[in-house]
């Protein structure tokens, strides 16, 4: 399929997902009820619109950053979580929850963003000016496990079961009960992060020839690494700050779009953002539709759906020797 056609089709899927997210749920709001006259309209404005916007933004952010990181590390298994930003942002939020239960959302958000910023600074310090992708991934893995173990420690010393429950619930990632203000707080950071990540396309293409060859073609690998750390920190950090950790999107989506648009890293970026948005919008709507009083958390649903899906993908790739 030609690229404009793919982008157009993906755009339509995102629109459909957005409309579905507004319509679907325990209470269906058919198109005929859209308008200020119907009481169900308020469900859309107050509950579903922020949620759909958030799903759209978070999906796009995770899809894009996954595509950038896979291109940068030249590794199809890379994921935004790999460089530790999600974990440190999560740790920041956990600290905020522990220090003051019922803290205002602004404090929680700021604390998580501070965690993400700490990851970006530590990455820069650990990797230095080498610009080496291997050092980057090792530093990220160290940050990820460090933040993970501190988080586990904090949960173990939580003063009461309510705090533990709140932390665990938050960490699993969900789009429920976010207000339009929450969304608007995160959106500028996500947009800035995406803008930073979006300029890396050409350098990612050159990196497919290897680091030294890319440098011989004029790529400044140190600066590229700084851009990727900053962009991921802003985009994924703010995504985690507003919705908790939602995994697998960044890992899966680039694989879904590559058969449609080819493997050149710069060609995968925009389709991955659209694909991520569509995936999260539909997954979040389905989570809402699942029977039962309590919703399945989006983060859990993504992992449950994502793991077998990814396994199937892996088997197919192995058979076609695409990664041989």
């Amino acid at each position: 399929m030609r690229r404009p056609a793919v982008l157009f089709a993906l755009g339509l899927v995102v629109l459909a997902g957005f409309a579905f997210s507004l319509t679907a749920g325990k209470v269906w709001v058919p198109l005929s009820a859209w308008g200020s006259g119907d009481p169900r309209w308020w469900i859309i404005v107050e509950l579903r619109l922020p949620r759909a916007l958030l799903g759209l933004a978070i999906g796009a952010v995770l899809g894009l950053s996954g595509a950038v990181l896979q291109g940068y590390l030249r590794n199809p298994l890379a994921d935004p979580a790999l460089i530790g930003v999600s974990s440190t942002a999560g740790l920041g939020a956990v600290i905020a929850i522990l220090l003051g239960l019922g803290a205002p959302p602004l404090v929680l958000f700021g604390s998580a963003m501070a965690g993400a910023a700490a990851a970006v600074v530590l990455l820069a310090l650990l990797v230095g000016r080498s610009g080496s992708a291997l050092a980057f991934i090792l530093a990220g893995t160290v940050l990820q496990s460090l933040a993970g173990s501190i988080t586990a420690f904090l949960i173990s010393i939580a003063p009461n079961p309510f705090a533990t429950a709140e932390i665990l619930g938050w960490m699993m990632g969900a789009l429920t009960d976010r207000s339009l203000e929450d969304v608007m707080r995160a959106l500028p950071f996500m947009a800035a992060g995406c803008a930073v990540l979006g300029v890396t396309g050409r350098s990612l293409d050159l990196l497919s020839l290897g680091e030294e060859t890319a440098r011989s073609l004029g790529v400044r690998t140190g600066r590229l690494q700084a851009l990727i750390a900053l962009g991921t920190g802003l985009a994924v950090g703010s995504a985690v700050a507003v919705s908790g950790v939602v995994g697998f999107v960044g890992l899966i989506v680039p694989h879904l779009v590559r058969p449609l648009v080819g493997q050149r890293p710069s060609d995968v970026l925009l389709p991955s953002a659209l694909g991520g948005a569509a995936l999260v919008l539909f997954a979040d709507s389905l989570v809402r539709l699942a029977p039962g009083a309590e919703e399945v958390r989006l983060g859990i649903a993504m992992a449950l759906l994502g793991t077998p899906f990814f396994f199937a993908l892996l088997l197919r790739f192995r058979r076609s020797h695409a990664w041989a």
């Binding site: 030249r74 497919s208 290897g210 030294e212 060859t213 011989s216 050149r264």
Partner: peptide
């Protein structure tokens, strides 16, 4: 122009 020894091609383009 640099033609390196290893023919690394990370992606199938």
């Amino acid at each position: 122009g640099y033609l390196p020894q290893s023919a690394e091609l990370a992606w199938n383009i």
